[in-house]
Write a protein that binds this DNA or RNA. Structure first.
Length: 404
DNA sequence: TCTGGGGTCCTAGGACCC
DNA sequence: TCTGGGGTCCTAGGACCC
């Protein structure tokens, strides 16, 4: 019997939101469909007489079209048929409407996607318990010690998971299995949709080095542009640079990380649980607002954001002591301010007060398009002193808590 | 009528302490 | 008086990801 080797899988649902919508609206199969905006905004694109109807009861001919949409918003997902028109995710809806006015427009329905997300993750953990959640449609799975996880480099187990997810949810996914997360993530992209890719260490020169550096999870547009300006296009070219050269150009941490990444090295474990670092709410306004001219409107939005954050904190059982705001001006420039309090809080009033002080430290002459409220330095509410929600957490309290 | 919302992590400077 | 460190916390900005 051969020795066990580390086998990490990355599983990525195929066109997740669109696939969930197609389960509900099979009549949309093959048509250009775009998902984006909220139901209310999308409603405005429907005949007023139909607006109270659930979408599934609206005839295909009456479905909202991209051309009838007005306002801000971006595309979350576009079906393959829509992509043929040059439409892609993160594109503005208005721009997409110019490219394909007749495309059908569906509102984003997060509760529905979450339902399917839970369902497919339950299938995964049933079969392989060491799963790391990477968002609504992605997970890492440690195959190493799972029965069958070593067979054919992980292909047998990947096939089983794929098949069971399809049986339970009707959704398809792609899986990459490799010696670590870095390579598994790249491998899952290889044969989309419904793909399985198995990568071993020896595959590095043949399958990884020809790829663009941008395929490395963690190299984004900025780092890629800088690499290109240094004459590096592929991961193979990156792997030819020595450590000190990379550190000189990208800094100690990033340089060393790039050096390892290009060699397919990554020791990060699959993490099954983690605590949140911050909780926030933000909103882009329907139109740009000005601190003086639109004071009442802004104030109402600001209060609502604080209430929502407070509600999120309480619902999830956290308190935080760093309160911050974020705003984006009409020219898309962004500023943040934050302030750390003496105590951990989770109530809307305290948050609103602290966030208000932050807002006062920011230039407000320019019209803005977005406002956000954030609470960080989180602790679990039940880990705090018993003496009620407002008990100060100062040095003395901490000492007492530790003593008893 | 360009450009959402919710996150994490890193850097870098200053304050303050040892 | 001058000369260094190291460590932690706080704050602002930015890259990146899903």
């Amino acid at each position: 019997m051969s020795e066990k080797i580390r086998r990490i899988a990355h599983l990525d649902m195929d066109a997740f939101y669109a696939s969930v919508e197609l389960l509900r609206y099979p009549q949309l199969k093959g048509l250009p469909v775009v998902i984006g905006g909220g139901r209310r905004k999308v409603d405005e694109a429907i005949d007023p007489a139909q607006q109270e109807q659930p979408l599934h009861r609206i005839a295909l001919a009456d479905f909202p079209r991209l051309k009838d949409y007005t306002g801000r918003g971006v595309i979350t997902t576009a079906t393959y048929a829509a992509r043929q028109f040059g439409i892609g995710s993160a594109m503005g809806l208005m721009k997409a409407a110019r490219l394909c006015p007749q495309a059908l427009l569906l509102p984003v329905d997060f509760p529905e996607y979450r339902k399917y997300s839970k369902a497919f993750k339950a299938v995964v953990t049933d079969i392989a318990p060491l799963m790391e959640d990477r968002g609504v449609d992605e997970v890492y799975i440690d195959f190493t010690d799972v029965p069958g996880g070593q067979r054919e480099g992980g292909r047998v187990l990947a096939r089983l998971i794929q098949k069971t997810i399809f049986e339970q949810t009707g959704l398809t996914c792609s899986v990459g299995v490799a010696p670590n997360k870095l390579l598994a993530k790249m491998a899952s992209e290889f044969n989309k949709p419904k793909g399985i890719s198995i990568i071993f260490e020896d595959d590095l020169p043949g399958k990884i080095w020809p790829l663009a550096c941008r395929k490395i999870n963690g190299i984004g547009p900025k780092a890629d542009a800088k690499l290109q300006s240094l004459g590096i296009q592929t991961i193979g070219e990156l792997a030819q640079k020595d450590l000190n050269w990379l550190i000189a150009h990208f800094g100690q941490k990033t340089g060393a990380w790039m050096y390892d990444a290009a060699r397919g090295r990554d020791e990060r474990p699959v993490v099954t649980e983690s605590e949140p670092v911050s909780i926030s709410r933000e909103t882009t306004f329907e139109r740009d607002l000005h601190a003086v001219r639109n004071k009442a409107e802004l104030s109402a939005i600001f209060t609502r954001l604080c209430e929502q954050v407070a509600d999120d904190l309480q619902r999830k059982g956290y308190r935080g002591k760093t309160i911050g705001i974020k705003l984006r001006y009409d020219d898309f420039k962004c500023v943040t301010r934050d302030q750390t309090l003496e105590t951990y809080v989770a109530d809307a009033h305290t948050i609103r007060h602290a966030a208000g002080l932050c807002l006062k430290r920011v230039p407000l002459a320019q019209p803005m398009r977005l406002l956000g409220v954030r609470v960080a330095s989180l602790v679990k509410a039940d880990s705090l002193s018993q003496r009620g929600t407002d008990a100060p957490v100062n040095a003395l309290n901490t000492t007492i808590d530790q003593l008893f």
